[in-house]
């Protein structure tokens, strides 16, 4: 069990790195990468807690966290930088993000 505690400390170190990069990151893409590592560190912490507490229902929370992390990353990626400005295929998406920026 001491090894599982050590693994939890390592996951906390990774999460601290993600928090630093999310606060400091020079571009918006760096912040999205930090958010993704935050999601993944949360999933790892849930899996380690299911081992540590011997409680299998935490695995269901981990499954939901994996799926929500993917959707959250895709949602954050849409906020990065200028969206496809020179393609005709996503003019609606561009207008939508411009409205969000001005509002």
């Amino acid at each position: 069990m001491i090894l599982v505690d050590l693994a939890l400390v390592l996951v906390a170190i990774g999460l601290l790195a993600a928090i630093y990069r999310g606060l400091r990151g020079p571009t918006a893409a760096d912040r999205v990468v930090a958010a993704e590592l935050g999601f993944i560190a949360t999933v790892c912490a849930l899996l380690l807690l299911s081992i540590r507490l011997e409680f299998d229902a935490v695995l269901d929370i981990a499954l939901v966290a994996v799926l929500i992390g993917f959707l959250g990353t895709l949602g954050l990626v849409r906020l990065v930088g200028p969206s496809s400005a020179h393609t005709g295929e996503s003019e609606a998406g561009r207008a939508e993000t411009d409205g969000e920026d001005s509002g």
Partner: peptide, 20 residues
């Protein structure tokens, strides 16, 4: 189980190191 847990946590810490 303990060694695999340390390996998984170490990989997350390694991702954090790469992020830094």
């Amino acid at each position: 189980v303990g060694l695999l847990a340390v390996a998984g946590g170490g990989l997350v810490a390694l991702a954090g190191l790469g992020l830094l």
